[in-house]
Every structure is written in structure tokens, then in C-alpha cells.
């Protein structure tokens, strides 16, 4: 009974807290948005102090031309260099205290990294949260536009997105001329063979760069591959997301039995900066061009 009343009290407190926030009334300049999770986010005015809960969102804010509005980023952020001087907080688990202390007008989150249940906590603290969800490359580009709209830098965001779309079209035009598409294995690490299974957007990236991803049909979304499966798949190109300076010989050292693979015999192993393909932000285009450079170096030179 006592427990029940305590819960009721908490509920009342939450209701009261949410009632405290300025109610949406378009006449006095409040803004109202619906985020990708279907939640209504109301802002009393255009936000001037923003925090991001994932590195990809930081890059999106900068791409939308609102980098100067960031007042804090996560400890995992490393791009662009301007983030080096910003205050940091832990995003996994979320350090709510540190975020409240930064006094943001808006918190940006993504269901790819953050727990949607955290939204309730932020609401109780009186901090508006906008959640992004993206399933494709186009969704990521749309997110840049949305961010521009949220932060009042729409024209810059529009220009960035237009130029990214131009690069995407140019790339598509070059790749469409291809007749041969090599089979590609994308690995996250070279010792334990973590890869991408069904439903990952990585397969879409590989296809756009003119390759065929070999692990697209594996039922597990984050499978650990066995050495023998890789031997049977016979990839023609192997992409390891372990940094651009990845030494291809290391792969053969760790997996000596792979000397038979076409990718190893023809030395078609590429190291790739992980943030370029694993981080759904504006640099996915750079990742795509790097993939093209790896899969079809001759074609990559044709890009303007």
C-alpha cells in the first residue's frame, strides 16, 4: 500500500513537472516538432545551447551549420577537431547531472546508441530531447536538414545536404557503369571476426560503392564469423574497419589459413577508418568514396 502511494506520488510529481514546461502555443513563438520516435518536442524558442548524446549527432550538428551552438559532447566524440575544447560527459550510461549542469535548451539523441526510455528522465528534468532514427543513407541526410530546422540554420543545412546529394549522384553515375561487382567482406575487427548481418546499412554502402556484401543474409545482426565460413565465402575484397593505416599482412598473420582467399592472393585488403562507415553522419559520403577507392580504384579517379 505504502509502495503504491509512493509510486502515485512520483507519478503526480512527474505530471506536475511536465505541466511546468511551457505549453505549446504557436502564437507566442514556441516551436513544436515530432521526432523520429513519434514524440512531440516543444521548444519555447530557437535553441542556443545544444548537447549531443552520440558522436554521429555532433557531426550532424556541425554539418547543419550549428556547431557553435554545441555546449557539450560525449566522451566518445573525436570529430570535427572543434569538439576538443567542449565539455565532455559520459553517454553510456548517461551522466544526467553533467548534462543538467550544462543547461542545454535541446538534447539530441539517436535510438541507435541511446535508450529511448531516457527521454522520460530528460522530460522530468525539463530538458527537451529530440530522437533521431535512421534506416538508410537518405535518412541520415534528412537528419541534417531536420537539425538545421531545429536549430534555425536551415539554409546552411540545405546547402550541405545539397552538396552531399550531388556527391551521391556523381558516385552513383560512376558506379552504374560497372559490369563486375566484387564480393566484399566487411569486418569490424580482425582477431574476433565481428561482422554485419541481416538488416545492416553497411550492405547498402557496399552496394553503392559497387560491391556485393557477403554477410547480408546471415540471420544474426551482429554475427561472429568462423574462419572456415570466411574460407568458404571466398571474398574478393576484405574491408577491415580498424583504421586507414591497417596493415593487411596482419590479417594473414592472425588467420594463416586464409592464404587461399582471392582477397589475400590479390592483396585486396583495405583498412578503413571505423568512424567513416560505422558512424551515421555526413562523413558516410567520405566512407562511400573510400570504399569505392578500395573496390574500384580506377573508378574513384573519375570522381570530380
Amino acid at each position: 500500500m505504502r509502495l503504491f502511494s509512493r509510486r502515485l506520488l512520483l507519478l503526480l510529481l512527474l505530471v506536475w513537472l511536465s505541466a511546468c514546461r511551457p505549453s505549446p502555443a504557436p502564437t507566442d513563438g514556441t516551436l513544436s516538432f515530432t521526432d523520429d520516435l513519434g514524440r512531440v518536442v516543444t521548444l519555447p524558442r530557437v535553441p542556443e545551447r545544444v548537447v549531443t548524446l552520440a558522436p554521429s549527432l555532433t557531426e550532424i550538428v556541425f554539418a547543419a551549420g550549428a556547431g557553435h551552438k554545441l555546449v557539450g559532447v560525449t566522451t566518445a566524440d573525436d570529430y570535427p577537431p572543434a569538439v576538443d575544447t567542449l565539455p565532455r560527459f559520459s553517454a553510456l550510461p548517461v551522466n544526467f547531472e553533467a548534462i543538467v549542469a550544462l543547461q542545454p535548451d535541446l538534447v539530441l539523441a539517436t535510438d541507435q546508441v541511446n535508450n529511448p526510455r531516457d527521454a522520460t528522465t530528460f522530460e522530468a528534468l525539463g530538458l527537451p530531447v529530440y530522437f533521431f532514427a535512421y534506416a538508410s543513407l537518405e535518412d541520415v541526410l534528412e537528419a541534417i536538414l531536420t537539425t538545421g530546422m531545429l536549430l534555425g540554420t536551415e539554409s546552411v543545412a540545405r546547402r550541405t545536404v545539397d552538396s552531399l546529394y550531388t556527391r551521391l549522384t556523381q558516385l552513383a553515375a560512376v558506379v552504374d557503369t560497372l559490369r563486375q561487382r566484387p564480393s566484399v567482406l566487411v569486418l569490424i575487427s580482425d582477431a574476433t571476426l565481428y561482422a554485419f548481418g541481416r538488416g545492416s546499412y553497411v550492405h547498402d554502402l557496399v552496394a553503392r560503392a559497387g560491391g556485393v556484401s557477403l554477410t547480408a543474409s546471415l540471420p544474426n545482426p551482429a554475427p561472429v564469423l568462423s574462419d572456415e565460413l570466411v574460407l568458404q565465402l571466398q571474398p574478393e575484397v576484405i574491408v577491415v574497419a580498424a583504421g586507414a593505416s591497417y596493415n593487411p599482412d596482419q590479417l594473414l598473420q592472425r588467420h594463416p589459413s586464409w592464404d587461399l582467399l582471392p582477397a589475400v592472393r590479390h592483396r585486396r585488403i583495405c583498412g578503413m577508418e571505423p568512424s567513416l562507415i560505422l558512424r551515421p553522419g555526413p562523413r558516410l559520403l567520405d566512407g562511400l568514396e573510400a570504399l569505392l577507392q578500395c573496390l574500384h580504384p580506377a573508378l574513384a579517379r573519375k570522381l570530380p
Partner: peptide, 12 residues
């Protein structure tokens, strides 16, 4: 078969 040979001798 070289692939089977690798799987049997070097992995399994």
C-alpha cells in the same frame, strides 16, 4: 580441394 584442405588441416 584446397579450401577443404585448409579447413581440415589448419582450422579444425
Amino acid at each position: 580441394d584446397p579450401v577443404a584442405e585448409r579447413i581440415v588441416w589448419q582450422l579444425r
